[in-house]
Amino acid sequence: MPPSPMADPTSVVRFAVLGDSLSEGVGDRVDGAWRGWAALLAEGIGGPAQRVEFRNLAVSGAQSQEVAERQAPEAVAFRPDLASVVVGVNDTLRHTFDIARLARRLDRVCADLTASGAVLLTACLPDPGRMLGLPAPLARPLARRQKAVNALVHAVSDRYDAVHLHLADPRWTDDRSLWSADRLHPGERGHRAIAARFHVLLAARGLAHGRPPSPEPEQPPPTRAEAVLWLATAGTGWVARRCHDLLPQLVRLAGSELRHWAGGTAARLDRRAEHALSAALTAVSLDVPVATMGE
């Protein structure tokens, strides 16, 4: 196998970014546009004589289908040395959620990118219900889905030797200074933290040769009034766009949750999710202990 271009101090390093709003940079606005962790990380990948070509293909609201069918082919054609693939939260927020389909799509995307010569970057994420502080009957179904997605991401990351970041860690989710007003996307400080943590992992593999991103924000944090204004305008729009699709099913899921809780059979829902995850992993020849569902 030829040496990686990233080992050549005069090479061009290509970095492709696939995913949704987290990777697009939502929450870190600079000069009227989203910047985000990936752009911050790109600045610290190359050495003094290296040039980094950065292509962010991530789109707010993207699900695994869009990543697999639209973003991945463009990324493969770019022939990146590094490619981040962070996706799945939007799948959990849809009535069409299917862990088996997600497993097939994610495995195929990672296989194609690895075959093209890319080192993968992946991350598991906190469940949106917890971040939004939803009532337990609404939050538990989303948490169950996100735990399954994270278990899948762990398995795929191991298969393709990805540089993996564990963003479901409570030390990350409980630090409110890292999050924007919507409680779902990092603010500038959070995006900088993600970039810095990825930089440490890449540097340990000899894949980052520049200075790590500064953890200190350049922009002042939003005031309380600005946060309230965002929630009343853009935040309301975000909820409205998803309610027509997610809310009816979420209400049904919450009803099922309450019935099982009242009947003392809530554990059945966990076992059902574990069996679905196991079947999805088996279908793509992956093997992860069911205990990973607790991570």
Rank of each mutant, 00 (worst) to 15 (best):
P2I: 11
S4Q: 10
P5R: 15
P5M: 08
P9L: 12
T10L: 07
S11R: 03
V12W: 04
R14F: 09
R14H: 10
F15T: 01
A16E: 06
D20W: 05
V26N: 00
A38E: 04
A39K: 00
L41F: 13
A42H: 02
G47Q: 02
G47I: 06
P48V: 01
P48D: 07
P48A: 08
A49K: 04
V52P: 00
E69R: 01
P73K: 10
P73E: 04
A75M: 07
R79G: 09
S84R: 04
V87L: 10
V89I: 15
T92W: 02
T92G: 13
H95W: 08
D98S: 14
R101N: 05
A103I: 00
R105W: 04
R108P: 03
A115L: 13
S116P: 03
P128Y: 01
G129Q: 05
L142T: 02
A143P: 01
V149R: 01
V153M: 13
A155Q: 05
D158Y: 07
A162H: 06
H164L: 10
H166F: 10
R171L: 04
L178W: 09
S180H: 14
G187Q: 12
G190P: 11
H191N: 08
I194K: 03
A195S: 13
F198G: 00
L202T: 14
A203W: 05
A203E: 12
A204G: 08
P213F: 06
S214D: 15
S214W: 03
S214F: 02
P217G: 06
E218P: 03
E218T: 14
Q219H: 14
A225V: 09
V228D: 15
A232Q: 01
A232N: 11
G235P: 13
T236I: 10
T236S: 10
C243F: 11
C243N: 09
L246H: 13
R259G: 12
R259P: 02
H260Q: 11
G263D: 12
G263K: 11
A266S: 15
R271Y: 07
E274A: 15
A276I: 05
T282M: 00
T282H: 11
A283L: 05
V284W: 04
S285F: 06
V288P: 00
P289L: 01
T292C: 12
